[in-house]
Amino acid sequence: MRDNPVFKIVSKILFGPIIIYGLYVQFHGDYGPGGGFQAGVIVAAAFILYAMIFGLEEGRKLMPDWVVRLVMALGVVVYGGTGVASMMLGANYLDYTPFAYKIYKAQHLGIIIVELGVGLTVFAVMLALFNAFAGFKPNK
């Protein structure tokens, strides 16, 4: 079943557009529905599709476990770091006001950075969950 060329070719064709759509949802969240949570899940879905068609090992070559774990922590660091950055600039934790001169520009910037952090963590966690469940070897 997995050697069926239809699955392989369709998944290869879909892989790029799914990621592009994920990025659209990620960075268009200010203007339409979406944001970091949904975008992370969508981008993870592209990698999960790849791993389902080509096998878990191939998927792990594409996105190694250490990268997944790093990105997982990186997202939280980006989010928390934004708060620390605003404290460094003299405002309260997670107050985006000092990031730019105009308040709406500062809010735009802050929201985009914070959503990126959410997206990174959600993407990596979803992929890690799939890898953990699909690659689990029960104790015999």
Partner: peptide, 29 residues
């Protein structure tokens, strides 16, 4: 008027309630 961002859900989620979303991210992590 303040943020110039049309999606009020994003405003609430990432700006007004930034602490909650940080907590959610940490929960997912």
């Amino acid at each position: 008027p303040l943020f110039h961002i049309p999606n009020v859900v994003t405003n609430v989620l990432a700006s007004y309630r930034g602490f909650d979303t940080l907590g959610e991210t940490v929960v997912v992590f």
